[in-house]
Design a binder for these strands. Structure first.
Lengths: 144, 144
DNA sequence: TTCAGTGCAAAGCGTTTGCAGGGTG
DNA sequence: CACCCTGCAAACGCTTTGCACTGAA
């Protein structure tokens, strides 16, 4: 967690700043947050943190392997901490509900592609479709 | 195909225009094209087609079920005709190569989620990772 | 003749970049 | 005290929207 941060930054000759600590913490607390949401959360604690800092920091944190991002909508990506167990995102396009599944869900897929030498990035995977409630409620799925 | 277009438009009280025909044809010919690429392709044949028309038309075509879109990068989406067999996209984040796989690849996944009543949108699925060549060439994948 | 569809221009959203000043190591 | 990091503001890429005109049915 945050101790990792100081250490991993140092390994890369990068610096530990309050912003970087706050942004990492925000991602950990919010679970699945867009850069905008991260910014808002950080600003609740310290005003005058800039959006560009959030973008730059999320990029650094992702390079350090401390956070990951996925695309759960056609809009902004969502970031989550790598502290959580790796998981696969399943998204209902109708009600926008997001469920997390164990990576075992896609194990057959991962194995099949491994035969071709392809390494699947499971944490990035987002599976879209229509959930039970929504397919019951209505018959015609609409595009995202 | 294009005959479908006239018919499906009529069913919805919508109109058949040269732009709509050209845009659908462009998507069919280009296989996997961004709105921008579709625009460029259409303009090769008829000048003064507007970007907003392309966006509006792709939306209509998708509602009619004639085209589909996927996200093969963090940038613009790509559209393809539903004439082609449904396929799953596998994308190497390193070299950006895109391979299409038979939906059978994800059949176990689809079946597992079907148990929960979730209907997977297979055509929208994009699986990211590192291809054989790239994982051989280098050891540290970078985020998209 | 009606009203869906278009082009145009402007605005929108999310993100990136150049720069000068500030703070970490 | 070097140089990484930040805030600010402007620019960027992609997409959406308002409006008046055009043209399909």
């Amino acid at each position: 967690m945050s101790d990792d941060l100081a250490q991993r930054l140092r390994e890369q000759g990068l610096r530990l700043t309050p912003q970087r600590q706050l942004i990492l913490r925000a991602v950990e607390e919010l679970r699945h947050a867009t850069p905008d949401e991260v910014l808002a959360h950080v600003r609740d604690q310290v005003s005058s943190v800039n959006a560009s800092t959030v973008y730059r920091t999320l990029e650094v944190l992702e390079e350090l392997g401390l956070v990951r991002h996925t695309h759960l909508s056609d809009r902004a990506p969502t970031y989550h901490s790598t502290d959580e167990h790796e998981h696969v995102h399943v998204v209902c396009r109708r009600c926008h509900a997001v469920r997390s599944y164990d990576p075992g869900l896609v194990q057959p897929l991962v194995a099949a592609l491994a035969d071709d030498g392809f390494v699947v990035d499971v944490g990035h995977l987002a599976i879209f479709g229509t959930c039970a409630d929504c397919s019951a409620a209505d018959e015609q799925p609409r595009p995202t």
